[in-house]
């Protein structure tokens, strides 16, 4: 059954210069019946374009073209504008849940542009190049920070040029700058500007670091 139908399609296409395979298929299924007398006459005409002669090639070409276009658009949007990622791991608890929180990332802050102390950033991990990590910035170049958790070594370091110091909110359960040292700003890919919690089913802004956000001391905001 399949072979005669295919040959009918091919012959119909050879006769009429049909641009779309879908019209060819429709004609083949509805109109075509009985012996095909016009075929000899039709074949003397110049051949139609290649894509019209091979409907499956044509369909593949269209699907491929739209697929590549969609992939390119998606890449540009997700790499240079915004993306929505599912976070996993308890290093940023309680600001971000250990699982089930979607993060809205703004790529305007890539390469550390406009990143400030207190922001939550997403960066390519300096130890494993195929991993991305989310932590909070606690110091920018020139600042002096405690190298380890409070009440451990008490050693202070100064952040070198072009680096920042990132630490997770869940201090005992986070592997961060306390282990790998200052993070080059070139590894920063995005800033987390919002989250969608699937347990509470609501959006919340993290643009200023969230509710428990850490801000540098500002006497104007001092209530006491």
């Amino acid at each position: 059954m399949a072979m005669p139908v295919f040959s009918l399609v091919a012959r119909r296409l050879a006769i009429h210069r049909i641009s779309s395979p879908f019209t060819a298929l429709r004609r083949a299924s509805t109109k075509q019946s009985g012996p095909k007398l016009q075929i000899k006459k039709a074949i003397t005409e110049p051949a139609p374009p290649l894509l019209a002669r091979y409907p499956y090639v044509y369909i593949f070409y269209r699907v491929f073209k739209y697929g590549v276009g969609f992939a390119l658009s998606l890449h540009i949007f997700a790499e240079y504008f915004f993306s929505l990622n599912l976070g996993q791991g308890m290093s940023m608890s309680p600001t971000l849940n250990a699982s089930g929180d979607w993060m809205l990332l703004s790529k305007r802050y890539r390469r550390g542009r406009d990143v400030a102390v207190g922001d939550i950033i997403s960066f390519k991990h300096p130890v494993d190049q195929y991993t991305y990590s989310v932590k909070r910035v606690v110091a920018m170049p020139g600042d002096i920070v405690l190298r380890d958790s409070p009440d451990t070594s008490g050693q202070l370091i100064q952040i070198p040029e072009g680096h920042c110091y990132v630490v997770g909110d869940n201090l005992p359960w986070s592997r961060d700058s306390r282990m790998f040292g200052p993070l080059p700003l070139g590894l920063v890919k995005a800033k987390v500007i919002g989250k969608f919690s699937t347990s509470e089913m609501k959006w919340s802004s993290l643009r200023d670091g969230g509710d428990g956000g850490m801000r540098p001391y500002n006497p104007d905001n001092d209530v006491d």
Binding site: R111, G112, P184, G186, L187
Partner: peptide, 8 residues
């Protein structure tokens, strides 16, 4: 490589 001392 992206220079460590200058992110840009």
């Amino acid at each position: 490589y992206t220079t460590p001392h200058r992110g840009e």
